[in-house]
Design a protein around this nucleic acid. Structure first.
Lengths: 108, 108
DNA sequence: TCGTTAATTAGCATTTATGTTAAACAGTGA
DNA sequence: TCACTGTTTAACATAAATGCTAATTAACGA
């Protein structure tokens, strides 16, 4: 269910990453709106949205002929959870790094 | 500097993701140790480590003939920061979802 | 029903990613 | 110096990702 590599794979493409960021700030949007400002073709956009959907990052619902896409908050939370699971690692490491820098400062 | 898609791309491969998880729990390791248990060839491993290095996810240092790799904590923190930047989005959305579920429960 | 709008699917070309084996390079220690 | 260990680079094959145009599907509204 929570396949991190698959989530990361979906977000590894700059176009898709931009789509996700846009949907998070603007909320649910139809395909045509998502495509606004982008130079990408409609079929290419459709496939990008499908990749995001397959990874569970976006939801899709119909409204007349339109298809409305939105970011699924659980997806972002899954990534957040992963970083928090390793928080001890990066917090401790960063603390040590900071301390080392402090020592360097003192020397001068 | 903080190219999220590039970070995600490096983590999108299951082999590389496993390497990163292992390095975070076990700490700095030489290539041979990282390769232990994996069926992957040495050259393939070398390239995976190079991808992680290029993305800024791991550091590399020499010790005799060995090359020791370790996860750079800043990389994980960068991802954590990204999720936190959008925290309002997923926290609020999840709260609404939870509330909706509550309403459903009441109906029964 | 028919034309229009919105989006997806099909088919194809090109690039990028991944894996393998063989060869090269660098440091160690006899 | 020479053989050994550890790792990377080279060369190549194959699979997967991405983009395009053309065709198809679905819903709306005159």
């Amino acid at each position: 269910m929570t396949d991190l590599p698959k989530l990361f794979s979906a977000l590894s493409d700059p176009t898709r990453f931009a789509i996700v960021e846009r949907l998070m700030t603007e909320g649910e949007l139809p395909v045509a709106d998502i495509r606004q400002g982008s130079t990408i073709s409609a079929p290419a956009m459709s496939r990008h949205l499908n990749v995001l959907s397959e990874a569970g990052i976006v939801s899709r619902r119909a409204k007349a002929q339109q298809r409305l896409y939105a970011v699924r908050p659980e997806a972002i939370q899954t990534i957040n959870d992963w970083t928090l699971n390793h928080r001890e690692f990066w917090e401790a490491s960063l603390a040590r790094l900071e301390e080392a820098l402090m020592q360097e400062m003192k020397k001068k």
